[in-house]
């Protein structure tokens, strides 16, 4: 009974999260499509947490090897996703905003 209930709750989480994702992305200007793809790529890097937990609980050599590979790939996803997104978004600092800031510093 408890497992059935947790399964149902999981379905609710999935449904609400799916709507959230839809709402977050809709009505986005096309210039942000690439940075957003990269940004969402970063967000699913949270899988590294799952890989870490799996590795911590590893009790055989096979699990240790696979878990280690999982952590390497997950960490690559997180860090790579962040760096690439950050570099892309750095281009979006609007020029008209940057100019008065420079003036203010002087």
């Amino acid at each position: 009974m408890i497992t059935a209930m947790t399964f149902i709750i999981a379905l609710y989480i999935f449904m609400l999260a799916a709507f959230t994702g839809y709402e977050v992305i809709s009505r986005v200007p096309s210039i942000l499509h690439t940075p957003l793809m990269s940004g969402s790529n970063f967000v699913h890097g949270i899988v590294v947490v799952g890989a870490l937990t799996a590795l911590f609980n590893a009790s055989s050599v096979l699990e240790q090897i696979v878990g280690f590979l999982g952590v390497v790939m997950g960490a690559g996803n997180v860090v790579g996703g962040y760096v690439v997104t950050d570099r892309m978004l750095a281009m979006f600092k609007p020029s008209d905003k940057a100019a008065p800031q420079k003036g203010a510093q002087k």
Binding site: A17, A18, T20
Partner: peptide, 20 residues
């Protein structure tokens, strides 16, 4: 893994990515 954070982040990207 019974980890709601993974479920939420993953599914948000799943639907956002599909829309994208």
């Amino acid at each position: 893994m019974a980890d709601p954070a993974l479920m939420i982040a993953g599914m948000v990207v799943g639907s956002a990515g599909t829309l994208l």
